[in-house]
Design a protein around this nucleic acid. Structure first.
Lengths: 210, 210
DNA sequence: GCACAGCCTGACCACATGGTCAAGATTTTT
DNA sequence: AAAAATCTTGACCATGTGGTCAGGCTGTGC
């Protein structure tokens, strides 16, 4: 038995570099055009490699897309995963929202790639969603529920609370063209969004005085 | 000068019927596959017409798509447009949210068609967004601002308030596959969403007592 | 510097896709 | 009922696209 895992075969330096180059280019193209809209020629051009060379590193267009998505999932769940039981409940929720918003701001291409996939019914990542994602959400919903029982934050449906964070933060990345058009010049969507969402979640969750 | 407008030429009964059939089929296919992912063959099959016949009624794939989107815009803006100055501010906002949520629930294909378009940067409807949509939002934001000045609802950024309604209601339609997976069996996303969102906007907007 | 594995590409293929067209079928008008 | 207008389609085309392959190039270990 060789010293390598099935998922991460040993790679030469050239392989390492070119695979990264290809994935970076593919992220650009897939996030802008969707899976069907993207072409291997565009990705090859963006990567500065020939099309057959792309297919030397990845078996198919599908495989590039799959690798991008699975690589993305871990990072995407991190903000929620980082919500700690031993912190202040309101601060933990606001911190989660803030981390998710920052993620959307700093990685809009990843956000769009993900949105495109879910829009088509998530055919390529349904297992992850029904497994890892679902479990994590259920776990954190139970945590929120406990906090609500203790009166540390006001009661509302904990799963929909988590969903609302996704909806609001994703929206600023995925619908950025619309948001910018509606806000007009002289507005920074992200700064304003951060302030608005902090207000929103404070009012929704702050325990009533007394 | 003939008795017909440039935008709505007189049409025979056959034309009327077939154009509707085609648009309905196209909505199915475009919303499920995106513009690039959809093919004229799929639309023709769904419509029960031959491909050349499609192109007898619509000059191109692009034209079908454009007609769908522009036809959709009016209906999509209606819930916001219906927010009246002379009503109770909180009830008006909750009513707006509720109408938008119902629209997402009852017309998920339209919602997805729209989402797909914005995700790609809204190349085909940027004028509408920068014109009609922007104007309407600005107008209603001023109304909300006035209500806030009067202390009838609590202060928050009015444009982002409107954006939050879009984000939250669209999410339940566009990301339905994800939402259902996370909630699991035995949940009705729409009923729960309506309750959660009512709580959310009540707490965000209710004036402080005293 | 030589051999060999790993890397790269031009030329090519099969198929899908948006769109055309001439000719035939059907409906409407007179 | 005939003429005119409208509707419908099979056959076809040009282009784009994912993917293949034989053979050449290049970096690495000896």
């Amino acid at each position: 038995m060789e010293n390598k895992t099935a998922r991460a075969p040993r790679r030469s330096r050239i392989q390492q570099k070119n695979r990264e180059t290809i994935l970076a280019a593919a992220l650009d193209v897939f996030s802008a055009q969707g899976f069907r809209g993207a072409t291997l020629d565009q990705i090859a051009l963006q990567a500065g490699l020939s099309k057959p060379n792309l297919l030397y590193y990845f078996g198919s267009k599908e495989e590039i897309h799959r690798d991008l998505l699975t690589g993305l999932m871990t990072a995407w769940l991190e903000p929620l995963r980082a919500m700690r039981e031993d912190g202040d409940p309101l601060a933990e929720m606001l911190g989660y929202m803030r981390r998710k918003l920052d993620l959307s701001r700093d990685f809009p291409r990843e956000s769009r790639l993900f949105a495109n996939e879910i829009l088509q019914g998530a055919p390529r990542i349904s297992e992850v969603i029904q497994g890892e994602l679902r479990d994590l959400v259920q776990e954190k919903a139970r945590l929120l529920s406990r906090w609500m029982d203790l009166g540390r934050i006001r009661r509302s449906d904990p799963v929909h609370l988590i969903i609302s964070v996704w909806a609001l933060t994703q929206h600023y990345a995925d619908f950025e063209s619309q948001t910018r058009a509606v806000l007009g010049e002289g507005h920074d969507p992200w700064t304003e969004a951060a302030a608005f969402l902090e207000t929103l979640y404070r009012r929704l969750l702050s325990p009533l005085p007394g």
